Measured scan of single mutants.
Amino acid sequence: EWCEALHSFTAETSDDLSFKRGDRIQILERLDSDWCRGRLQDREGIFPAVFVRPCP
């Protein structure tokens, strides 16, 4: 499952995944309604679900 970043997100901890608006992120797991775990290029981490939308 893939999503597109609606806003940029800067990691606040070593577990977070930083990304820029427009990045396509592979969703690996939905942790709960607020957080997802994903992969961007060679990095993995968690990020807020409200920062992304599903890719068509």
Rank of each mutant, 00 (worst) to 15 (best):
T13K: 15
Q26L: 12
Q41S: 12
E44D: 06
W2S: 02
Q41G: 15
I46K: 15
I27V: 13
S8T: 14
A49M: 13
G38R: 02
L17F: 11
A11I: 03
D42H: 10
F47S: 03
V50Q: 15
I46L: 12
R24F: 11
A5F: 04
G22D: 02
D42E: 12
A11M: 06
L40K: 09
T13V: 07
L17T: 05
A5G: 05
F9K: 12
E4L: 09
F51V: 09
R39V: 07
G38L: 05
Q41D: 15
F47K: 08
A5T: 04
V50H: 15
L6V: 08
F51I: 13
E4F: 08
I25F: 04
G45V: 00
Q41I: 06
C36Y: 15
S8K: 07
W35H: 13
H7T: 14
W2V: 08
E12N: 14
D34I: 09
L28F: 13
E12A: 12
F19E: 01
D15W: 07
W2R: 08
I27D: 03
D32R: 06
D42C: 07
F47P: 02
A11Y: 00
S18Q: 07
A49R: 10
V50Y: 13
V52N: 05
E44Q: 09
H7P: 01
I27Q: 00
G22H: 05
I46G: 07
I25D: 03
S33H: 14
F51W: 08
W35A: 07
G22L: 01
H7G: 09
H7S: 12
E1Y: 07
T10N: 15
I27H: 04
I46V: 11
L40C: 12
L17G: 01
L31C: 09
E1V: 15
T13G: 14
V50S: 14
G45P: 00
F47C: 04
E12K: 15
V50E: 15
L31Y: 09
F51A: 13
F19S: 01
K20W: 02
R37V: 10
L40N: 13
D15L: 10
E44R: 03
C3T: 05
F9W: 14
P48A: 00
P54M: 12
L40F: 14
F47I: 04
D32W: 02
V52S: 03
E12D: 09
Q41F: 11
L17Y: 05
L28R: 01
R37W: 06
T13E: 09
E44W: 02
K20H: 08
W35L: 13
S18N: 05
R24G: 01
R43E: 10
G38K: 01
D15C: 10
F47E: 01
F19L: 03
R30M: 06
L28T: 12
S8H: 09
T10F: 09
F19Q: 07
R24M: 09
I25T: 01
A5V: 02
P54C: 05
F19G: 02
D32Y: 02
S18A: 11
G45A: 04
I27W: 03
R43N: 03
P56L: 15
T10R: 11
V50F: 05
L40P: 00
D23N: 05
L31I: 13
F9D: 05
C36V: 14
F19W: 01
K20G: 08
R37D: 01
C3E: 00
E29N: 05
D16M: 10
E12Q: 15
H7V: 13
L31R: 07
S33M: 10
W35M: 12
P48S: 06
R39T: 07
G22P: 02
I27R: 03
F51S: 13
F19Y: 02
P54Q: 08
P54F: 11
E44A: 05
S8W: 01
C3N: 09
V50G: 15
S18L: 00
E4Y: 11
T13Q: 11
A11P: 09
Q26M: 14
D15F: 10
E4K: 08
L31Q: 07
G22Y: 02
W35I: 15
L31T: 06
S18V: 04
H7D: 12
L28W: 01
T10H: 12
H7Y: 13
D23H: 01
L28Q: 04
R53E: 09
I27E: 02
A5H: 05
R37E: 03
L31P: 08
T10K: 13
R53I: 06
E4H: 08
L17A: 04
D32A: 07
V52C: 08
I46Q: 08
S18E: 10
